[in-house]
């Protein structure tokens, strides 16, 4: 299959996947009895936003304000390219695929910072500072959490990482790495309970406070898409990627990704929104030391487990 066709397939998968994430989120919120509402709401919401006025606040930085959602979408599209849907079914397969993926997450937060900064409001400014603080905080733990599978697979290529889990998924002997990865992923995507830069009511909706209509739709779509991609990468790093019996590879990846996303979103129900200093404490005082412990443990286990090091 040509690279172009695969890329288009991945982007189509991204659109469908994002809709599914929105549905899962509604199901978690509303309960399984409201399945019809959960399926309908994301579509109705998109329809509404598409027909809404695209407002720009007074004295806003026009270029930054308008470009921010497109930067977010560009980041999503670029990161999606290295997501392998199956053996040799990947849009772009560099030898440093995982590194590429993690590095490209930073501009996503930059898009949000631009959105907050350009609004010319104090609330937007506070949200920007919060987003900037998270940007620095999450990158270290998410990188360290991903080092575990890299050490075990001896490769940064996502295809290689999946293939090295043929015998044993890394989640079995790297559960701490998974927990760190998921918590950091929630940071990156500004998901509850780490959504104080977006949803703190003291900041009236945070960086998105002044966005309306199609631009708001683009941002919400990008947020859901980046969450989907991070869950997908979590499956690739810890749950054996597309591997599984009977079903086609992309279907296995999709099932595992949506299950992981559903569990993460469901667990979020039981937590109140954390304060930003508590989030930073969690990152620097708990996740960072824990990720260093994880790397040490993985290093030891890689030597001890037969086939741990490929």
């Amino acid at each position: 299959m040509s690279a172009l066709l695969t890329s288009l397939l991945i982007l189509l998968g991204l659109c469908v996947g994002t809709y599914c994430i929105a549905v899962i989120q509604q199901l978690v919120l509303l309960g399984p009895r409201r399945a019809s509402a959960a399926f309908l709401l994301p579509l109705a919401s998109a329809w509404r936003l598409l027909h809404q006025e695209n407002l720009v606040p007074r004295h806003a930085d026009y270029f930054l304000f308008r470009s921010a959602p497109f930067i977010a979408i560009a980041v999503v599209a670029l990161t999606a390219l290295v997501m392998p849907l199956g053996p040799n079914l990947v849009g772009f397969n560099p030898s440093i695929g995982l590194f590429y993926f993690i590095v490209l997450l930073s501009p996503f937060v930059v898009a949000l910072m631009n959105a907050g900064w350009s609004q010319n409001s104090k609330e937007g400014l506070f949200s920007t500072f919060r987003a900037a603080a998270y940007l620095i905080s999450y990158e270290v733990p998410i990188g360290f959490a991903a080092i575990g599978p890299v050490m075990a697979a001896q490769s940064l290529a996502t295809q290689q990482i999946v293939q090295s889990q043929a015998a044993l998924w890394y989640v079995v002997w790297q559960p701490l790495g998974l927990v760190i990865y998921l918590l950091a992923a929630l940071f990156v995507t500004f998901r509850h309970p780490f959504d104080s830069a977006l949803a703190g009511s003291e900041l009236e909706g945070g960086v998105f406070a002044e966005y309306s209509g199609p631009r708001l739709l683009l941002f919400t779509w990008a947020l859901d898409a980046i969450f989907l991609l991070l869950m997908g990468m979590g499956v690739i790093l810890f749950f054996g990627g597309w591997q599984g019996p009977f079903l086609p590879a992309p279907l296995w990846l999709a099932i595992k990704t949506f299950l992981l996303a559903a569990v993460v979103l469901w667990l979020g129900r039981f937590l109140p929104r954390l304060r930003n200093d508590q989030m930073l404490t969690l990152c620097w005082k708990i996740l960072l030391p824990a990720s260093l412990v994880n790397i040490t443990l993985v290093g030891i286990l890689t030597l001890l487990i037969p086939g741990g090091s490929r």
Binding site: Q26, L29, L30, R34, A37, A38, L41, A44, R48, Q52, L55, A199, S201, E204, G205, F208, A209, E210, Y211, S212, L216
Partner: peptide, 14 residues
């Protein structure tokens, strides 16, 4: 109801 949602910013409201 899921069909009506409260929002934090008037920019997001109908």
């Amino acid at each position: 109801s899921p069909y009506i949602q409260a929002v934090a910013s008037p920019r997001h409201a109908d």
